[in-house]
Design a protein around this nucleic acid. Sequence first.
DNA 1: TTCATAGTTCGATCGTAACCGAAGCATTGT
DNA 2: ACAATGCTTCGGTTACGATCGAACTATGAA
Lengths: 228, 228
Amino acid sequence: MKEGPDIAQIGALIGDPARANMLAALTGGRALTATELAGVGGITLQTASTHLAKLEAGGLLSQRKQGRHRYFTLADEAAARLIESMMGFAAGRGHLRHRPGPKEPALRKARICYDHLAGDYGVRMLDSLIASGAIEAVGEGLALTEKGESDLARIGIDVGNLRSSRRPLCRSCLDWSERRAHLAGSLGKALLASFLDKGWARRTAESRSITFSPEGDRQFLRLFPVEM
Amino acid sequence: MKEGPDIAQIGALIGDPARANMLAALTGGRALTATELAGVGGITLQTASTHLAKLEAGGLLSQRKQGRHRYFTLADEAAARLIESMMGFAAGRGHLRHRPGPKEPALRKARICYDHLAGDYGVRMLDSLIASGAIEAVGEGLALTEKGESDLARIGIDVGNLRSSRRPLCRSCLDWSERRAHLAGSLGKALLASFLDKGWARRTAESRSITFSPEGDRQFLRLFPVEM
DNA sequence: TTCATAGTTCGATCGTAACCGAAGCATTGT
DNA sequence: ACAATGCTTCGGTTACGATCGAACTATGAA
């Protein structure tokens, strides 16, 4: 009965609390150094180093050295989606790490999921794009319409440019806090990037959460209204 | 930095080889007793019992007792999809449990994935359904067309009946051996059930693989041709 | 009743892996 | 050249959990 892929290996990799914390932190999208990751894992640098080596060998992480720092990121989008899907499953079963803390609400409102917007705002954005006919939804699949392409051009997003990448334009990603889909893919990435670029929102220092400025908040809600 | 769901818990659950083997076996869809699962896990009954209790507490398994037996199955489709997605990731990284064995080819050709057809035949079936216009694909999403509904009625599948269930009709599921999508959802389940019912194929005793009879093989290939 | 099969619980053993201190490289800055 | 920072490797300790034997409960059969 030893058929098929070895899920125990990656399960064990994710199964250690220190490693899981590091992976969760990296879902925030920014590259972190070994020392920073040791911090989020609650362990010393030595221990973190061996953990990171294992995660890299297992194909979950990739590193690039820059000067005397070593920056770690999730290996690719597939790794990010695996972690996110595990979060979704865990959240659905009530496996939370503690009772909701002070930072929790901010995290539920808007956060980074690898490289796109998640949380209440992420779900709202996708809902609004579908309601306005910019994106067409079939089952779990998403496709940008012609109307969507021109709508997006108007707010400064060049879709033609995004198409050239091998990565899918639209992808739906299950949000673990909202339990509904939000927009991933290169378009999801581009939208978040534009919000940050416009100064509507910024990433918080040591967390996955995203904070909107009062002005940015207003613009965002105007751009992506909820239908009644 | 202790935000969000606890992925370490379920990671650790899947991370033990014995438990992972049991879960993989249960992906075959049929309910197995504790003794059988002890067998696939390569452990004694006592050990298996504690493992199964943990898996159930973690929300991955559910059991129903029947006489003096205790039948275990994956808790629900979400659990099945989590396992499958981990298999997909593991296979993509080359984390195999051994060099391809004798049973491997049969498994790659046709196997059960929770309750629907997977492997080469599963992928072929979906490809053919899309090519014939029975199913429309948008991104990762799948939708049955009117033509598809009448096509299916002709081979004895009542789609209206399936729609009444809360479960989605069409779902795409990533195949770990083919690395492409096959058809899941209640329609995927119904199709496999009809093949088994017609005697075209049958499940093998102790494995996830499915064997087609010569006649069933011919019928299947006629029904789901590959376009050139 | 008695026996057999299926499964759980307890207790003890044992192995592995997480962990950290200390020492060793590598890179940058002065 | 020297010091400081970032990270890795080595060695030894420790703790947790997987494992099984043995005893116990439950269901079914003779």
